[in-house]
Nucleic acid binder design. Sequence first.
RNA 1: CGGGGCGUGGCGCAGUUUGGUAGCGCGGCGGUUUUGGGAACCGCAGGUCGUUGGUUCGAAUCCAAUCGCCCCGACCA
Length: 447
Amino acid sequence: MRMTRYFVPVLKETPAEAQIASHRLMLRSGMVRQAAAGIYSWMPLGYRVLKRIEDIVNQEQIRAGHIPLLMPTLQSAALWRESGRYEDYGEEMLRICDRHGRDLLYGPTNEELITDIFRSHVNSYRDLPLTLYHVQWKFRDEIRPRYGVMRGREFLMKDGYNFDVDKASAIHSYNRHMVSYLRTYERMGLKAIPMRADTGPIGGDHSHEFLVLADTGESEVFFDDSILELSLGDRNIDYDCVQTCSAIMEEWTAPYSRTDETHDEALYRASVPEGRRRQSRAIEVGQIFYFGTKYSEPMGATVSDRDGRRVHVHMGSHGIGVSRLVGAIIEASHDEKGIVWPEPVTPFPVGILNLSQRDSNAEAVCQMIYGELVKKGLEPLYDDRDERAGAKFATMDLIGLPWRITVGSRSLAKGVVELSRRSDGESENIVPEHAAERIAEIYAAHF
RNA sequence: CGGGGCGUGGCGCAGUUUGGUAGCGCGGCGGUUUUGGGAACCGCAGGUCGUUGGUUCGAAUCCAAUCGCCCCGACCA
């Protein structure tokens, strides 16, 4: 993409309303624009990141055997009256009335809809286990939206629901989600720590939240330092294997890690050596629940078991805050100059920066590298504006692409271009013909 | 919802106390000179001061209502 043909409305000055780094940087880099309190338009650059995160979420869901579908944003109040939550959910639920006076709501979550779909079409234990999910916009009418997309009213969430014939099977689904979530976050270059959590209004008694450490987080967390060393790496995981999933579950839940809601100071002191105790702020980026028959009973979701008896299905639900992750990743990865994108979610893999825009040789070299990168499936962002070097560097640093190829007549005179890494500024000179290949090698390691 | 604050060119702000017909910086457009870390100069365009009503000879400024937004708190993916 050539910058002169793209649309990245960067701001030199920080908008007054932005308090935290991610909000500030998303506004300044032209990723989002606020449309109303807690509601945002996703500008081209932000939209690319959102899509990359959504892609990773989808890939990992499908890898774990979960089935994508798409439910609507607007739902009929009837189903919610049936589950009893139309009254329980409270003011956070945006209620709408159509021209016929029928009550609708903008879905804050989808347990009722999915249960309705399930009970209408599934009747036998033979069709289980089943996990359905979708990535859809949600609306929760927060009293006070804040922190940009981190606490918006409208937000993009992946929410999934598992249906199992009994508790044992549902617990495996729970563990399987734990594993797939760990892998999902790891693939985004994030350290998200599972922590025992409250179940809140969703109900049930098994729940873990996934938290990303950040000073601006809204949760206070306590954990054993050793959990940070755990990594799935390139383990080959059989998601259908009960032992594999429960072993990983145990591995990650053995070290103490809890949010302030479930924190037990005595247990913390007893089970974590003093040198490994850590307390921090953190951002919640996902949560998994097992809640048994909480919805299947009131809504009559049953299947016939082996003996022909009707039994209520055991369910769980799982969520990943897709739009929130964009902010969370920035909170976890930025510096005073701007964003520092991890390779797996960056809007563009590399930026080409032409410092000598009017030098036809420099332009030719940039175009050659551009073409080579596109051939390798790595579309760069080429800053071909007629700007001074300083402005181009500042913009590129702000946008935060992980790699930059700097082309200028000065280095071209020596037959090289400069390849530099955003995270630490380290750079090397390479001949232009090798630039695309080097970028391809770097990215090969991430996919 | 309780407490605090703010709405003035695209962005950041001054002007409001003490009414007299709107200004600065950035950005935009044209031009000249520049060109490896947000350039300099010259010129130009752009605002019914959130909205409505009131007071007044006259309102960005005073009064009332209303809409929107932000911050702290309780709530939350």
